[in-house]
Design a protein around this nucleic acid. Structure first.
Lengths: 135, 135
DNA sequence: GGCACTGTATTAGTTGACTAATACAGTTGG
DNA sequence: CCAACTGTATTAGTCAACTAATACAGTGCC
């Protein structure tokens, strides 16, 4: 598995797991219906308690990124978190605002902000393989 | 003062203060050398302990947004957090990535991401009054 | 000097986040 | 049906974050 955690990092283990799986899904490295490692399996691999992994999976389920079937396993959701278009934009806007406030306070110019955004977006879209796009 | 906190919100009070002051500085509502309300004054206004405000001011000082003079008060820093261009970009990139991962997982298209970004950036640049730009 | 304001330091209590141990419950395939 | 796998629930311990009470220390102005 591609997941790595750093216990000495101050961001909690379960959040590190959440973040990495979210990224993998966003980038298309994980596709809908793909199985995730079992709670125990991943727990052993990362040398943490199964409940810690379960906690990560729970958060991901609540956010609609994955779904679980008791006794069967955990899988990536089909795309489409149920959330209104407005709601989604609100969430995104908040995150972008936070990023831009940071950038401005660091003394960046409008141009530099735009360029950085373009570069990041470009990289992410390229990473999504053609098949994963347009779901 | 323009600051408002919500104690029932799960994001800690001192962080709410930090975020709002950062935003105010980024938007130009607070300019370099502007005095901030005293620790006690703001504490009374928000009905919190002075130490809570002091904690917020400490964080802001560490980040270089404000500076303090013992006995005199707290003021907005002159622009320019000492940080290399590369370092600044790294920070910004991380925040933008997080935002975009979220957007993609919510099912947004490249176009929608770009549009939202443009809208947010536009709004923020407009809010900065002409005099505050280009410092 | 003294009063009234600044920020600072110390200490301490409460709460919740985080992780873990361990036992429970559903699914699947032989 | 049973063995071996899934996720789940309960309980509990540890630790750090957060806030507060209160006393200390520097500055400035009369």
């Amino acid at each position: 598995m591609f997941i790595k955690v750093d216990p000495s990092n101050d961001v909690p283990i379960f959040r590190q797991i959440v973040q990495q799986i979210k990224t993998a899904v966003a980038m298309g490295r994980l596709e809908p219906e793909d199985p995730l490692p079992s709670v125990r399996q991943l727990a052993v691999e990362l040398a943490v308690n199964p409940n810690t992994v379960a906690r990560a999976y729970l958060d991901l389920e609540i956010e609609g990124v994955i779904y679980k079937r008791q006794g069967a396993g955990t899988f990536v959701s089909g795309r489409g978190v149920e959330m209104s278009k407005n709601e989604r934009r609100r969430v995104l806007r908040e995150l972008l605002e936070k990023a831009l406030v940071e950038g401005l306070n660091l003394g960046m110019e409008e141009k530099e902000l735009r360029e950085t955004f373009e570069r990041v977006l470009e990289k992410m879209m390229q990473a999504r393989t053609p098949e994963t796009v347009g779901r």
